[in-house]
Every structure is written in C-alpha cells, then in structure tokens.
C-alpha cells in the first residue's frame, strides 16, 4: 500500500495534466494558474518552515564530535570533524552539504553466526547514489534556466555543452539526465529491495521519489522521443516571469504533464521530509562548534530549579559529619 498508493497518485496527477490539456484544453490552468500557486506555496511554505525552526531556541551546545578536541598545542585537533570555532564549523557544514561527509563514513554490518563474528564493510553505495542524485538534479535544474533567460547566459550554455560533452544522439544526451534517472531508480530500488528499508519506508518516502521519477521521465521523453515546440515553451516561461503569461496551445500534453508534476513537487516540498534541504543547515549537532568549556553557551529559557543546598545537607547529616571529624559550616 505504501508503495502502490503514491504510485497511483503520481500516475493520476500525470493523466490529469495530460488529458486536461489534450482533451479539455485547460492550458491556462496547467500552464499559468498552477505554476503560480505552486511557486507561492513553495516560497511561502519554505520560508515559514525555516522561520519556525529558527524561532526555536538552541538551549544547549550539543555538537556530535567526530574527532579529537582542541586541548593542548601538542595534540593535533580534528578541525573539521570536531570544530572549535566558526571556521571549522563552516568547513564541516560545507563538507556535509557538498560532499555528504557523514554518508561517506557509511559501513555495512554483518554477523557471522559461528564465533560469532561481527564484521564491518565499507559501504559507499548510498553515498554514491545520494551524490549522483543531488548533484545531477542541481545541474539539470541549472540547465533549465535556459528556458527562463533571454539571451541565455554564457555560464548556462557552457554548463550545457560540458554536460553534453559526449555528443551522443540528436539532440545530444546530457550525462546528468542519464545519471539522474539511474540514481533515482536506484534510490527507489534499494527502498523496495532491502527488507529493513522497506520496513521503515512510508508513503511519504515513495511519493516524492515517484514524482521525481515522473518529472525525469517526461522530461527525457520530451527531449529525445517526442517533438516539442521549444519556442512555445519559452514564450510561456518568459511570460510567466514577466507576469504577462499566456499558455500556448502548441506545447504538448507531455510538456504540461511535466510542468504539472514539477508544480506538485514544489507545492509538496515544504510539507514533508524534503525540507531536509534547508534543515541540514540548522542541525545543532552539526552546525555548532565544540567550545562549550571555553565560551558559556546561553540557554534563553534557563529557569531556576529546586536543588538540595549544602545547608539542607548539613542539617540532615551534620551530626554524623561531626562525629566523623568532617568539618562543618555551622559553629
């Protein structure tokens, strides 16, 4: 159920847009109204989310330290994995966000029952898949800026040329498109194939995967298998940007389906786990330096608690202390 329902949902979403345009002629709804709504939900929702997070205080400085602390000049501290200052934190976060540092550590644990023996093997597949997925998605997104700019900036054209470096096919296949589709497919497969992962996965994990897979596939189909009127699309995107939109009838149903799935993704974004994109920057176990013995960290809601004072203690044990010859405050 957790797999099937999201799959059906994405198929329905696809058909809605495809037939909505092809059969019912709802170009304006799918080409203009939904993109604006989705964008507003995305921006407002994500900002709201981030502000809500940021408004919650960080009462304690609790970084997870993954290396040697800074103590003596003669012991080399681990500047990135156990940062003692802002620079180290920036480094740690950069490594985490750009290179998925923690996933890179991943191991696989196996048990041989005789002995028994616990063995750990390096396991970088998730890291590789994650990197491939996120980076190719970023590059594909940047490439898409060619539809939103006129003239198209040189950087984007350069990136595009680099991406199509192998010059295979007409129009050329972009390396990132292929990597992207493979990576999403792999992320999906591991979720259903690995028994533990299948066990923990929710519909909310499959839904964005199918959505992204749908977006990727429709995009790929449009570029390589179907005729798509690029000029018409560009008119639409530029129109959207200049708040003077008109949804062209020439663009295919496939294009509108592609666009609609993107809209759904944008609108869904602030509500689920996809917010990890922003949340990772705010995670207190990673973005704080380990300097709580050097600088006092302030808890804004620190409140007085009931303690057992020394006076009360001496009140109770004073006699015994006196007998044992332990010095007292009283007398």
């Amino acid at each position: 159920m957790r797999v099937v329902i999201p799959l059906i949902a994405v198929i329905i979403l696809f058909m809605l847009a495809y037939f909505g345009v092809e059969a019912a002629g709802l170009q304006t709804l799918f080409g203009v109204v939904f993109p604006y709504i989705a964008l507003v939900i995305f921006i407002v929702g994500l900002i709201y989310k981030i502000v809500r997070w940021a408004m919650v205080p960080v009462p304690f400085r609790i970084p997870t330290t993954c290396g040697q602390q800074k103590s003596f000049p003669w012991i080399k501290p681990s500047k990135l994995d156990n940062p003692s200052g802002t620079l180290g934190v920036i480094g740690r976060m950069a490594l985490e966000v750009l290179c998925f540092r923690s996933l890179f550590r991943n191991t696989r644990t196996e048990i041989q029952k005789d002995g028994p023996k616990v063995a750990y093997a390096s396991n970088k597949w998730l890291w590789l898949g994650g990197m491939a997925f996120h980076w190719s998605m970023l590059i594909v997104s940047i490439r898409h800026l060619r539809f939103f700019t006129e003239p198209v900036p040189g950087v984007i054209i350069g990136l595009q040329d680099l991406d199509g470096f192998f010059q295979v096919g007409v129009p050329v296949f972009y390396a990132t498109s292929i990597i992207f589709l493979l990576a999403v497919g792999w992320l999906f497969l591991r979720r259903v194939v690995s028994p533990q992962l299948r066990y923990i996965s929710l519909a909310n994990d499959y839904f964005p995967l199918f959505l992204i897979l749908g977006i990727g596939t429709t995009g790929f189909l449009m570029r390589h298998l179907m005729k798509t009127d690029i000029v018409a699309i560009k008119n639409l995107t530029l129109g959207l940007l200049s708040f003077n939109p008109a949804a062209p009838a020439e663009a295919s149903g496939m294009f509108y389906a592609h666009l609609f799935l993107v809209c759904v993704l944008f609108a869904y974004f602030p509500f689920g786990k996809l917010t990890h994109l922003a949340g990772v920057f705010l995670s207190p176990t990673r973005n704080l330096s380990n300097n709580s013995r050097v600088v006092r960290h302030i808890n804004p809601w620190n409140y007085p608690v009931k303690v057992h004072t020394y006076a009360e203690y001496e009140e109770e044990f004073g006699e015994k202390m006196k007998k044992a010859g332990i010095p007292l405050d009283k007398e």
Binding site: W53, V56, S102, T107, L126, L197, I200, D205, H276, G279
Partner: peptide, 24 residues
C-alpha cells in the same frame, strides 16, 4: 519541547529514512 529544542523540532521534520543509521 518542540518550542524549546530546535534539535527536537528539526529531527522530527527532516529524517529522510535513508537507513544509514540503521545498522549502527
């Protein structure tokens, strides 16, 4: 606690159930 601990709030929101922590 959701309004007092950013850790709690964020950790409730952003887990992607990638399973990297599972066998650790």
């Amino acid at each position: 606690r959701l309004s007092r601990y950013r850790t709690f709030k964020i950790f409730m929101d952003i887990c992607v159930r990638c399973g990297a922590c599972a066998d650790k």
